[in-house]
Design a protein around this nucleic acid. Structure first.
Lengths: 226, 226
DNA sequence: AGACGCCGTGAGGAATTCGTTAGGACCGGA
DNA sequence: TCCGGTCCTAACGAATTCCTCACGGCGTCT
């Protein structure tokens, strides 16, 4: 059983890792929000233990980022005992909320209670870059957990690029894929729609990190540029 | 959504009933352990709110009694904040544990979090959205508890959408599923029947929350938009 | 420097698509 | 025959999307 532990306090991280490993759990670690999303996508944990007090990244954002593509049980650990904080975290998609200081026995019991309900549903294949999640099967795109609306043409171009990660996709190939044969000369279309995709998906649309231009040749999708 | 509240304190019972009813929950009450098991068997609640401090009957026994035949989510409310009590209750099969005194907002948020994961009976594949319940096996649809009459075509479209939750269903796929091959161009049909479905099922037919349009591409059923 | 090709950006009208309404064709049952 | 229900056709504004056009930046070649 894989558990992802997210905390910025190295001491707590260590204590949890030892305690959980001793109970037979397979523990992954993350020290920040972005790292948590990244590790979660890679290791596909069956439960997430999340400290809300992360520096520079709201814990709610982590919850929403996870909920954009997975229903993994999330147990929030927080120093804040304020009722509003609990409500926000639970409504964002967390499954349980424990305040520090906590008894390790109770935490383990809550982990057992949550993992009892763990559904081992087969997750759909997804592609992640930055805070964007693309689900090709379900035709959904989310950015920081929120749905992104794409027009048919935008989606079609994104799909071709995502299906050819790290590879150069020529203008000719893109044009014929989306508009069919006979549109080989209309590369103004590509400039237009690539700009729209970047505006909707890139962190800095004027300086693309994932949807790159190869001058004179075409475009390239770079998933792991972050 | 039916909730069974088990408590021996008449005052707390009344307060919870009023608060839950105000949120649209359908509340059943029980004042003792045996009564709780009895009422649960009769009303088949979708969530149980259980006070551990019942006279003459251990709360653990109630949990075990329920777990003998149902997996309904159990939220324990208790005056005891001792770690061992929590571990016992959770390991007996409870899903969450809140100590008194508690904030009503937090309790409601935890109820929402638990009911999100409410498992539907394996025999009857049931889909819920808003106050609508779709029983795919039984070909029945209810809204706010009352039966909704659907024409064969309406049902067929709803079935395709519900069987592909959160996924985009293209116009082409819908048309060929319902009318067979050769009707790919007749997307006026879809506009017509989607409008009828929305009129019968959506809380605000003119502003759909569950049966969504993806302009240019097709339609999407979003179960958890509420 | 100047010309040229290529790319990014913005604005605005054309074209398509969607939601809605109304009404006729068809069919089985009373 | 009449009637209720269902399916389909047709048409209209409204919203959305697509495309045209124009302009400016940047690098390369003459």
């Amino acid at each position: 059983m894989r558990i992802l532990v997210v905390d910025d306090d190295a001491q707590i991280l260590k204590a949890l890792r030892i305690n959980l490993a001793a109970r037979g759990y397979d523990v992954s670690l993350a020290r920040s929000g972005p790292e948590a999303l990244d590790v979660a996508a890679k290791t596909k944990p069956e439960l997430v233990l999340l400290d809300l007090g992360l520096p520079g990244f709201s814990g709610i954002q982590v919850i929403e980022g996870l909920r954009g593509w997975t229903e993994v049980p999330i147990l929030v650990v927080s120093g804040r005992s304020d009722s509003a904080d609990k409500v926000d975290a639970l409504d964002a998609g967390a499954d349980d909320y424990v305040t520090k200081p906590f008894a390790i026995d109770e935490l383990l019991a809550r982990i057992r209670a949550l993992s009892r309900r763990a559904t081992t549903e087969p997750d759909e294949p997804i592609t992640r870059f930055g805070d964007v999640v693309v689900n090709l099967a379900g035709h959904t795109v989310t950015k920081a957990g929120e749905a992104v609306k794409l027009t048919p043409t935008e989606w079609h171009i994104l799909e071709v690029l995502v299906r050819n990660p790290r590879r150069l996709v020529t203008k000719h190939f893109l044009l014929t894929s989306v508009w069919g044969p006979g549109y080989e000369k209309e590369d103004g279309y590509l400039r237009l729609y690539l700009a729209q995709l970047r505006k909707k998906l890139e962190p800095e649309p004027s300086r693309p990190r994932y949807l790159l231009t190869e001058p004179g040749m075409g475009y390239r999708f770079a998933p792991d540029a972050g």
